[in-house]
Nucleic acid binder design. Structure first.
Lengths: 199, 199
DNA sequence: GATTTTTATAGGACTTGTCATATACTCGTC
DNA sequence: GACGAGTATATGACAAGTCCTATAAAAATC
């Protein structure tokens, strides 16, 4: 549902192909807060086309497949505006890494710390990526008429991602410290009944 | 994929029914970091059963439907341990609210602020919920043998969620301030071509 | 000259997750 | 006594998303 509106949002700035949407808008422009599968982009464009929210025209090229340039229709613009005004309820949290930690009581302390350290590295990498994004004024964004307003909003969302990654790293550091002091011991194997017995 | 292992993890603590898993383990115990759909829980239990990772026995009850009590098998325990040792790569971020903000340049500043304020309230609510969770030693957790180790890990994950929510609120406050100062103006309607023209 | 990357679109198979609905009985409350 | 909430399991229909593969040719790199 979000993908659909993101596509309308990007097309409302500039007509472009599915390929442009995937690479320039999603991967480069919004990759810090949303990912899009290539197949999903094309399928969604197809559906939006059938629904009359976007339309396409074919631009022939020599050698390469025709460019299928999509643009937003009036109907699509109305749908986008409705979505923009409709407040976004925060989706329930699903954090596979935290779930992993939550269930890790069978792992020895040392391995929990190793998991935390690995995750720390990955959040660090994410920060590096975000630093790169902050430097890059994205092409599709730059070309758009509303350059500076869009750019400012993009900066804001990158700041949010940076803050989130930093918070995760801080939490990991605290947690490594906590686990290093020794977590309460797990119960002995004997106390655990695989298959749960009968009684 | 995560749901499957979470179920194995919970069952490795205590044999229980699908209903218990959904309500006590997911909603009450892990709801701050993972949500599970009831239908999905039963379907996954079914599949795990067919794969020999869990088994069930029927406990007849008067009036109510039979309790189908699931317990983890040796095979299931091995699968769980493999998963626990296998580091969890952080999944790509998908934040519908940030996406919404990113695409909001068509909204006037005041409406962007309203969106931010609404989200602030919801993160505040999340904090309240987390405070409740921090107070509650969960039933299923309490009954488990490894009480204190599990409880400590759970406390850690709640701390992570609290920190994340606080960070979001701080970011929102900063952003409200930023937008209040006035974002660069959007382009006039005339500068935007619905349907993209031909050139 | 051979391989890889980039540009460009698209379908098949699959997994995961959501929503609605059905059954069925108990217990508390208004 | 009606009504809703809690306990308990399950299916059908569907939406959303991922992974893999295929096609096709130019341009860049080794």
């Amino acid at each position: 549902m979000a993908l659909e509106h993101a596509i309308l949002g990007f097309l409302s700035r500039d007509p472009m192909t599915g390929y442009d949407l995937k690479t320039r808008c999603f991967d480069d422009g919004a990759g810090h807060l949303w990912t899009a599968d290539q197949a999903q982009v094309y399928r969604t464009l197809d559906r939006l086309s059938r629904e009359g929210r976007v339309r396409s025209r074919l631009v022939p090229q020599r050698g390469k497949p025709d460019r299928k340039v999509f643009s937003i229709t009036h109907k699509g613009r109305r749908a986008l505006e409705t979505w923009l005004r409709d407040p976004e309820d925060p989706s329930p949290v699903r954090d596979p890494f935290l779930l992993h930690i939550l269930l890790s009581s069978d792992l020895p302390d040392g391995e929990i710390i190793a998991q935390l350290e690995r995750a720390r590295g990955q959040y660090q990498q994410r920060l590096d990526d975000l630093r790169g994004r902050a430097r890059t004024e994205v092409d599709a964004w730059e070309r758009a008429t509303r350059r500076s307003r869009d750019a400012e909003l993009r900066r804001m969302t990158i700041a949010a991602s940076v803050a989130a990654a930093r918070t995760s790293i801080d939490w990991i550091d605290d947690s490594i410290e906590r686990v290093s002091k020794g977590l309460p011991a797990p119960p002995s194997d004997a106390a655990r009944g695989t298959d749960g017995g009968i009684g």
